[in-house]
């Protein structure tokens, strides 16, 4: 914690970074939330521990770019993946960000409870490298943690074993709950379009009504726009006030990317994006 604050203070003092996007403690609680430190005093409030669930990379495309200095960001390895994904997609340049990597030992699912095998965020289950790579500096140490049941994977396997009609009925019940608040979009580090297709009205492809049909269109298209891009941080599911298991769709797309192309988005900033590129030898067997 002190090491993190020290690095943040130095980065602000030397004007390397104009601000640091990090986590601060919610007063009177162990919970944390995103916090933007703009001076050394504020940098003293930065923390990092297992209660830091948020993927802060989302702010890189939301916050006003500084005129001078870089955008500083505290990033655990999954956040780094999102940052690399943004670099791959040319949304930011490497010299625009100052990345303070933090070694992570897993974060909680429910911030009201301490970290345990049962209370481990879904994304940490799937985490392949708790140590962030390619950052400007790294603090803290990563302790191994016990993985929990892969609930999303299990549910997805269950879903796959159903008939198409049953799957449709499952999603009909889930999407009926959607209130079209677009929290899934806003919380997503890779949903950065200046004008989302859902907000386009000429023509209106996705109905703005929160009808089941409009909700189907919205959630399918969002999942598709993240195909081969989702880095699996789970922020959409966490932000959803209707508890729709959005990660099922994102995970499925991730599995296809792995199976068909052996590709994981956000792994290497020099890789071309998956759906932005092609290969002559791509699978052709489903096309008549």
């Amino acid at each position: 914690m002190e090491a993190l604050q020290k690095i943040a203070k130095e980065a602000l003092a030397s004007k390397e970074a104009a601000f640091i996007i990090g986590y601060a403690r919610v007063p009177g609680s162990q919970k944390t939330r995103p916090f933007i430190a703009r001076d050394e005093a504020e940098a003293g409030q930065l923390v990092f521990d297992e209660y830091c669930q948020n993927n802060l990379a989302v702010y890189l495309t939301r916050i006003a770019r500084p005129k001078e200095g870089k955008m500083g960001i505290v990033a655990k390895s999954c956040d780094v993946r999102a940052i690399v994904a943004l670099l791959q997609e040319n949304q930011i340049k490497r010299n625009e960000v100052y990345i303070i990597g933090v070694n992570c030992s897993g974060v909680v699912e429910d911030p009201a409870q301490p970290l345990s095998k049962e209370n481990l965020a879904g994304k940490c289950n799937m985490c392949q490298a708790p140590q962030p790579a390619g950052t400007d500096t790294v603090v803290g140490e990563a302790k191994p943690y016990e993985r929990a049941d892969d609930k999303v994977g299990k549910l997805l396997a269950q879903l796959d074993s159903l008939s198409p009609q049953e799957r449709f009925a499952f999603w009909e019940a889930e999407f009926e709950k959607c209130v079209k608040c677009y929290a899934c979009r806003q919380a997503c580090p890779l949903c950065y379009c200046e004008q989302c297709i859902a907000d386009k009205s000429q023509p209106r492809w996705i109905e703005s009504s929160a009808s089941v049909r409009g909700n189907f269109a919205w959630n399918m298209i969002r999942a598709f726009h993240l195909a081969g891009r989702c880095i699996g941080c789970g922020e959409c599911s966490r932000a959803c006030p209707a508890d729709i298991p959005l990660m099922l769709l994102n995970r499925k797309m991730g599995m296809i990317a792995m199976k068909e192309f052996n590709y994981r988005h956000g792994s290497n900033m020099d890789d071309p994006t998956l759906v932005g590129s092609y290969n002559n030898s791509d699978r052709n067997d489903f096309i008549m």
């Binding site: 079209k180 608040c181 899934c184 806003q186 919380a187 009205s201 932000a239």
Partner: peptide
């Protein structure tokens, strides 16, 4: 730090703004 999702308004028992399309 607000991300501009509107879940706050949509879960609220009294927020009542609407759009007509």
């Amino acid at each position: 730090t607000c991300l501009g999702c509107a879940q706050c308004a949509f879960v609220c028992p009294v927020c009542h703004c609407f759009d007509i399309v």
